[in-house]
Design a protein around this nucleic acid. Structure first.
Lengths: 143, 143
DNA sequence: TGAAAAACATGATCTTTATCATATTTAAGA
DNA sequence: TCTTAAATATGATAAAGATCATGTTTTTCA
């Protein structure tokens, strides 16, 4: 459903959401340990996210990655789309091209709804929403 | 969520469920076209399923693959377990080892339920159930 | 204005998954 | 009992995904 890369990216963004600000930037290799992702791997992912405006960054000394206010209201689906290319969540569970509500494959009802529910939640949930959940004690870091 | 191999395997089993019987066996290469899976790939998958009693087969002339009555009441999760090894559906959506109901990761509620619902359906749905759906016109072949 | 610290860009390697190929075994039928 | 048709077993190759490495650019600060 989600690639490892997408999972790592979500974890990275979440960590930035909790710990960074415009004044407090975070190095890729600093992120690496708490979210348990290899340093050069998370660096590459964050760079890709930065290119698409999902995270912010500045180069040079005192530089690093962070989230600004705009970044914080981005829905999670954007992260997945950038990293996995969007195709992964679109197809039916059996990867049939002509499977849809009106012409469902045998697994469709059982799985299709599940899948589209998940996609809907990714579309409706922003980074800020998850942070609120964590701060309210409903879910937990570390990742 | 499901590997290609599991999808193929499910398609193969479904096709056998619809078209085969103890009297009417089906060759691997015959299956290949209608379910749109490379012939030697589906052959290998069916052999693996056969080894675990999920499909039946006989060698030699007039041989082939088929489902007996016992095969038809097997829940779909068995297919996935044999092919994907069972690990794929067990972990949380972010692949965190210490994520559970009592200590959920930020995606847990949003995704965990979705995922466990899906697993539950795989556990509760048998091959026969899907066949009934097809015969009732609620879902469709070809795959 | 030079040195250092950081992201950025690119590509190499390693691992897993998917796919293909082939030799062996079993069973049917002449 | 020989030939043939099939599954079975095993392993080789190809493609994708994950991981690592390294050189380039930008920015800060002395």
């Amino acid at each position: 459903m989600l690639s490892n890369s997408s999972k790592y990216a979500i974890k990275g963004v979440l960590y930035l959401a909790m710990k960074s600000s415009t004044e407090k930037k975070i190095l890729a290799k600093e992120l690496s340990v708490p979210i348990n992702v290899p340093p050069s791997y998370i660096a590459k992912l964050l760079q890709e996210l930065g290119k698409h405006g999902i995270v912010s960054s500045t180069k040079g000394p005192k530089g690093g990655f962070y989230l600004n206010e705009a970044n914080r209201i981005i829905p999670l689906i954007k992260i997945v789309d950038v990293i996995d290319g969007g195709y992964r969540l679109k197809s039916c569970m059996l990867s049939l091209s002509d499977c849809n509500e009106d012409h469902p494959c045998p697994l469709h009802k059982m799985v299709g709804n599940t899948k589209s529910n998940f996609v809907k939640q990714l579309q409706e949930t922003t980074v800020n929403d998850l942070v609120a959940d964590i701060k309210a004690g409903n879910s937990f870091l570390p990742l």
